[in-house]
Design a protein around this nucleic acid. Structure first.
Lengths: 190, 190
DNA sequence: CCCCTGTACTCAACTTGTTGACTAGGCGGA
DNA sequence: TCCGCCTAGTCAACAAGTTGAGTACAGGGG
């Protein structure tokens, strides 16, 4: 039921089409939630049926007709109720972690390659988040922004995504050091 | 398909019952993967059917009969293949983040309470991870452990879980500062 | 002229993950 | 003696997430 709430939170920025939401998810909410377009369209249909969002069909020249969704009063209410409800903690749930857990009796070189790849990916994400951050701040300092901006939620969640990826980079580096050192030891010992 | 691999990685420590695995998951693999007992039992049945694990029924005095599972050669092979395959990056997927994203137009006080609760929970997890770490290290220093231990995977994933929760604590503190400062500002302004 | 990319979706099938209830015996404390 | 917790599971139903293919039109490049 949480994709639903994430969508509603995303619609706080104004009405949006399913297609745009898919891209927006990729660009901003993706800091902490990901989903496929299919999931989004299905959920949007259900949310409309449940009266949480309203659709407005917009005919376009030279482009397919699209449907713009916006939060209804009921949707707003529901979102507020959600923010007031308790939230279960989550785990990382990352395949790479499973691979590292099993690395000792698996293909260590391949795992190291995966870690390197992940580190690069995380660095790219960090760069993207930093650009997004600069865009959000505009010419304000962080303090000015936090004091004056209408919404700080997007900024705070961006910070979480940013530190998550920074942490990933550090951990990847640490793993590589450890695994390489062990590799060297095993080579000279065996 | 990744729970399957997590289970196989957990079975590297030796044979285990479904019940024990559920607890072990809670205690160690939970650093980065969580699941319910039901999921585990279902997956174990499937894995047995697929020949990845073998079950041994053990009758006990004064306790229900249990089934101990262990990795088969095929399971080992499959796990190695998994470690050598590419792994998709994941997002955090945390309800609390969704709540913070929507906090500006939701129930800010309730969100703050949720953040405080989460911070406490994360601190408890950190304490638990630290105990686990001390147990893994025994009387060795970290360097000694990393050089001599048979498996470093569990230690490395433990580090990831640890730094994830430390990051959570820091972020929670940051959010609370920001939200409280804004609350004060809005009170004096409005 | 054709292919590729981008917009804006839809449908179907499947795998994963969640929730709640149920069985059944032993153990310990009030 | 009864209550509730611990061990060790099972069953059913549902919600959420994934994968892959298909539709349709428009613009741009070679």
């Amino acid at each position: 039921m949480s994709l639903r709430n994430a969508v509603m939170a995303a619609l706080l920025d104004g009405e949006s089409s399913g297609y745009d939401l898919a891209k927006a998810f990729d660009a901003s909410v993706a800091n902490f939630w990901i989903c496929t377009p299919q999931q989004l369209y299905r959920e949007l249909d259900r949310m409309e049926a449940d009266g949480l969002i309203a659709a407005r069909t917009v005919e376009q020249e030279r482009r397919p007709t699209k449907r713009l969704f916006s939060l209804t009063a009921q949707g707003h209410e529901e979102l507020t109720r959600f923010t007031a409800s308790p939230h279960k903690p989550t785990a990382i749930r990352d395949e790479l972690l499973v691979a590292v857990l099993a690395a000792d009796s698996g293909d260590v070189e391949a795992v190291k390659a995966s870690i390197r790849e992940r580190r690069q990916w995380a660095e790219a994400k960090i760069a993207r988040y930093e650009r997004l951050r600069a865009k959000l701040l505009g010419d304000r300092t962080e303090d000015e922004f936090l004091a004056t901006a209408e919404r700080v939620g997007p900024y705070l969640t961006l910070l979480r995504g940013l530190s998550f990826e920074r942490d990933n980079v550090r951990w990847c580096a640490r793993c590589l050091t450890v695994l390489e050192r062990r590799g060297a030891r095993l080579d000279t010992a065996g």
